[in-house]
């Protein structure tokens, strides 16, 4: 087996495409993730995130293009999968096996597992491994897959919406594990539809929409993407607040009624709050826009 060069990209796709009948699930996706990076793969439901990951794992065959894991073609799983660990979005286990039996199986068949670290992870994720898989909630099944994946210390972790079933405490533990993995130099390919999760963990993100990679950007640019929606209800009309439009970071000032204003805000909120302090504000709400809203803003058309 050829040893991959240390500089080989952890993930590389060229013109990757997958068509299911008339549906184009992934179109012409070219992406490179260098080793050691924590890469966020963002997109709304049905955008093609899981399909891309399944193509990367060789579970699906691409209609066009190719994918490589550390320069090993994705289809050659015996080579490519020596250097990765995977957590699916929806973890299914054999119902009659216990959690420990599932973990032993994955460790025994997989490319190698740090058993001491695995025991530590079981503690941290508060998972009872002696229960049969059929008694596990979806969150607990996800924990089994997460423990198995982190314990391999594989150079590449492919995580497909791994926190969808976890509670906030476990999400925090998950983020700590990601940070430890990044410190050890592992590459993380994290798919998610939650901006906040990606923002906390990742150094670079790719955004996929309707099967197409529409943006690959660093975290600083992501913060620019991140704007707040401000809604203020006034007790009395305050025409002088028109000047809000001139403040830095404010865009798209709207007046649905004379006593309600809405605006989009990027950057620190201080100037807007100072301006509002002079008016008679009855109710103030600041809300992060959903990923979908950002997409609508940036790409100017509704989702399919």
């Amino acid at each position: 087996m050829a040893v991959p060069s240390p500089s080989a990209p952890a993930v590389r796709t060229e013109g990757l495409g997958k068509r299911f009948g008339p549906t184009e699930a992934v179109v012409d996706l070219s992406l490179t993730v260098p080793p050691g990076e924590v890469f966020g793969f963002l997109g709304p439901n049905g955008a093609g995130k899981s399909t891309t990951i399944r193509l990367l794992l060789g579970l699906l065959r691409p209609t066009t293009g190719s994918a490589w894991v550390f320069d090993a073609p994705a289809g050659e799983v015996a080579r490519a999968h020596r250097r990765l660990a995977y957590v699916p979005a929806d973890v299914s286990l054999w119902p009659s096996l216990t959690g420990r039996e599932c973990l032993d199986l994955l460790a025994g068949v997989g490319p190698g597992t740090d058993l001491a670290y695995r025991d530590q992870l079981l503690e941290r994720f508060a998972l009872d491994p002696d229960r049969r898989a059929r008694t596990y909630s979806s969150g607990n099944r996800q924990k089994v897959a997460l423990v198995a994946a982190f314990a391999t210390r594989a150079p590449l972790l492919v995580l497909d919406e791994p926190t969808s079933g976890l509670d906030p405490l476990m999400e925090r533990e998950f983020r700590a594990c990601i940070a430890e993995a990044a410190e050890r130099g592992q590459t993380v390919f994290l798919s998610s539809h939650q901006l906040a999760e990606v923002e906390l963990a990742c150094s670079r993100v790719g955004i996929i929409r309707e099967g197409r990679l529409v943006e690959v950007t660093g975290l600083a640019e992501l913060r620019r993407l991140r704007r707040a929606e401000v809604v203020a209800d006034l007790s009395t009309p305050a025409p002088e607040l028109q000047r809000l439009a001139a403040l830095p970071g404010v865009s798209d000032l709207r007046w649905p009624t004379p006593v309600r204003l809405e605006l989009s805000l990027t950057g620190p909120p201080g100037p807007v709050l100072r301006a509002l302090a002079d008016a008679d504000v009855a109710h103030l709400e600041m809300r992060e826009p959903s990923l979908e809203e950002i997409f609508l803003d940036y790409y100017g058309q509704g989702p399919a």
Partner: peptide
């Protein structure tokens, strides 16, 4: 049936070829 229920996804993420 295991395949249809998604139970083989984790197994096939290991260095295990399907034909094997």
């Amino acid at each position: 049936a295991d395949e249809a229920a998604g139970r083989l996804a984790l197994l096939y993420s290991l260095p295990v070829g399907r034909s094997r």
